[in-house]
Design a protein around this nucleic acid. Sequence first.
DNA 1: GTAGATTTTGACAACGATGTCAAAATTTGA
DNA 2: TCAAATTTTGACATCGTTGTCAAAATCTAC
Lengths: 339, 339
Amino acid sequence: MKMVTIKDVAARAGVSPKTVSRVINGEDHVRPEIRDAVQKVVAELNYRPNAFARSLSSSRSYLLGLFIDDPVSGYAAEVQHGALLRCRERGYHLVVEPVDLQREGWEGHVRDSISGLRLDGAIIAPPICDDAELLDVFVRAGIPHVLIAPSTQPETSGAVWMDDRRAAQEMTQYLLDLGHRQVGFIRGPLSHSASARREQGFRAAMAEAGIVVDESAMLRGDFSFRSGLELGDVLLELPCALTAIFASNDDMALGVLITAMKRGIAVPEQLSICGFDDAATSRAAWPQITTIRQPKAEMASAAVDILTDPAFRKQGADHAQRLMLKHELIVRGSAGKAP
Amino acid sequence: MKMVTIKDVAARAGVSPKTVSRVINGEDHVRPEIRDAVQKVVAELNYRPNAFARSLSSSRSYLLGLFIDDPVSGYAAEVQHGALLRCRERGYHLVVEPVDLQREGWEGHVRDSISGLRLDGAIIAPPICDDAELLDVFVRAGIPHVLIAPSTQPETSGAVWMDDRRAAQEMTQYLLDLGHRQVGFIRGPLSHSASARREQGFRAAMAEAGIVVDESAMLRGDFSFRSGLELGDVLLELPCALTAIFASNDDMALGVLITAMKRGIAVPEQLSICGFDDAATSRAAWPQITTIRQPKAEMASAAVDILTDPAFRKQGADHAQRLMLKHELIVRGSAGKAP
DNA sequence: GTAGATTTTGACAACGATGTCAAAATTTGA
DNA sequence: TCAAATTTTGACATCGTTGTCAAAATCTAC
């Protein structure tokens, strides 16, 4: 197919290609009447600049990379969507790159994207945003990058996050306010730093209420539905008779819910359950799960904003930017008054 | 950051840039010893070709577009992942483009991707792969494209799909074999062509068994959890006392399941439920939902294969390729013997 | 050993935009 | 009105690769 080039537009508008370029990029120093004329021709010919030529010439790619561990998860999907929409608004495109740190050769893939595609910036999702070796690849390549919900915040990286600790604390407080005193907690995997912060929040709220946490009711899961199923069984066998279980993500909360159902335990009448994430599944269950909404899409859009902000781009990756977004406690049916 | 160019490699290997280019692209006509020498230098310098320069020069972008309606759905995630992995194997990158046909300006966005990024090919997911206007944009642009599970198969488009009709027929037969005679069916939205084929399969199996379908037990949902919830209520009020309900996707099946639970109806003892899709949620519920596994990732990989197949690329989009993949009936706990 | 066929190699010109910088046009100030 | 200051414009080189095509090297057959 014949493509319309900047020359075609220039010829038809009776100006030089450079002038057309100026109009397209909204630069100064173009007389209004010429600007209008050029824009008219652009519209007429339906001209679109060739992204490759532009990138080659300007050494900007208008491409952001989203590096993510498990692109199939609902979490990933929401993050991606948030990033995608904002990219579009900003005239950028998004390239999604799955990174499996367990697999040999991940570094090569990441390098390929950075060097081959000349990414203008990178968004790195949890949990891989906590991997020092991975971050080092970006730092060494001099690519501006923003971490989503990282555990530590390296000087050289931007970051967008929410207060997991505080959110977990609020959720725990919510349970305490409902009269619960025997509360079990299911931690997430060590690889997810957020899960540690959630645990801290839980402990803080309990301590504040003067309740000694029963360590036998603090189990570690792996964020999977199955582990919720299994650990729920363990918790419900406990002699201390829990009246509430707080799982540090929704999939596990769902597992606990199903386990309770199998055992004929009424939720929330006999047992309150709450989760964390506001995953799609938390709404699919019955009763729907009381949980914490993470601003997933918003974190991603914010990351795009940071990376595409002209001011930020100018000063380079030195002034890594940081931003904390708000979470929200979503009350649904799975948690109720203590029996 | 200083980038390594093909010239650097050429200089160090003592050959011309063109020869390096030949080695990199695996072309013929390079003496083995030179090939090896060049490859060694490439490894030493950690050279990666600049994708933009390459694209600009060769008028190939090594970029495929995935055009999708709702990128947040689990379906989308699986399709995307399948495509992503295969793209990587083939040295391609994937750009995901959400397309909202309801929104003014979608055509402009699609055109932007095609023209601006010079996509080498496009994968179009359901349900938008059934929109003639959208397809026309690709056809006119002369972009090879493969439709995933489309309803009709235009001559100018490739397609990858599964046999929805047959799958639904098998599922229905499975219910019939379990002794069910009063079976309700929840259809999908008209916009999803697959849902019509699933309905046909259901009717075919019922007809074959000599059972007259009760039209009042054939309701139309919109593939959402909520509609399963509501229509489940309607079906369970029916005087004909259904012993099984076949929802044409898992989210709706889940809705029916929850409704049954709320009403104290035991699944599968009193009511069998089955779905379609093998969505993540179908495993999260209890009992887990008996369903049809769609080869989502496989369809996407196959689409990538078609688009990146050199033979296909050479002969152009004229020889649109077609491929049907196998589904699988997944027996879980939500369907059992008729009471 | 030589002519001719074949393979291997490299020089050079694209690809389509933007950056640089100097020329042309316009405005300003006296 | 003219010189100087300022704004607007375009010529040209450049980004890093690949396509084209002719030159150089090698092989084949007599």
